[in-house]
Design a protein around this nucleic acid. Sequence first.
DNA 1: TGCTATGTTCAGAATGTTCTGAACATGAGG
DNA 2: CCTCATGTTCAGAACATTCTGAACATAGCA
Lengths: 180, 180
Amino acid sequence: MDHEEARAYAEDVGVVLAQMGTTPAFGTLLGWLLICDPPRQTSTELSEATGLSKASVSTGMRVLQQSGLVRRVPTAGRGHAYEIEADAFALAVDPTAKMRAFLDVVQRGLDLVGDERAPRARRLARTRDFYVFMMARLPELMDEFRAAQDARDARDALDAQGARQPEDPREARPALEGRT
Amino acid sequence: MDHEEARAYAEDVGVVLAQMGTTPAFGTLLGWLLICDPPRQTSTELSEATGLSKASVSTGMRVLQQSGLVRRVPTAGRGHAYEIEADAFALAVDPTAKMRAFLDVVQRGLDLVGDERAPRARRLARTRDFYVFMMARLPELMDEFRAAQDARDARDALDAQGARQPEDPREARPALEGRT
DNA sequence: TGCTATGTTCAGAATGTTCTGAACATGAGG
DNA sequence: CCTCATGTTCAGAACATTCTGAACATAGCA
């Protein structure tokens, strides 16, 4: 994979993310940080690699940082470098923040109707119950994934030391399947 | 709650949804269908109630329908009426569609890197594993909610017949709390 | 203290999006 | 067949977003 391929890939990620409501620059930067080598990149490197202006990199990285997707680490000399967070995409997909905002507006609707048992309140009540349920359960699911991941990381570390012969890779990585 | 309050509420929902990437008209229509009485509304009613043009209602409802959030039912005379789906917001929040698109682009990145065990592939592989995990688990969670909901609906139906005295409402509806 | 590399802010050009009015379909009832 | 209620499509006005270049800050080093 040469530099141009990687850059094109970053732009592809930008397109996909843009379809989900982010700005193209945001997605492109995230895409580059996902595939770049080395993983830490300065603003100048990001600007050169992605072809975005320094200004776009500056604002884009600020947003990425505020979203918790990217971490800023100081470099040896002056300046900083950016690095993608290990579980960045857990955050990216985590709908609890959005759900919280929506839950508020649904609850306001119920207050407006007054009687929660009125037929008219049924749609609202059902919606609220769904969000309450999901907001309670999603963090559990995230934790479960992280725990499984940590366990695998620990085992991989042992493998790297040669303390244990790695088996068929299919054991380690789940197959790509599911309800289509 | 008078008509003007309900209309204002629909617009509030429009604002909240717009912040999540939809168009204001889309969210306003959904908000109105969430709180309106009767639950089924024709295009003309929707236009009058929300203050949107017939054109906006037409295009907005088409999108809502394609998203599976709203159902179109024929009315007695000519024309149709729209009604919100019972579990509309399960669909609205369900990230599996987005995740599928993202999973594809992540997998392409891994193919580009070539060796999945290369350090450079680590970020991509971890991201993919997260999506695979979530896409496998989210449908289970949705099913669980629906099952619980159906069970409650059945019990509510019995209550309505007076076959059983409903107890403290807090038993039936979960309290609004969770990790803040 | 200057000098330079680095990062930030901001006004505006280029580009997209959203909504509407008006013209165009469609189909039930007289 | 004609009329009228209903629904759809589309060009364009109004509005908003995104990105950039250029000017402005900031901090290490001589």
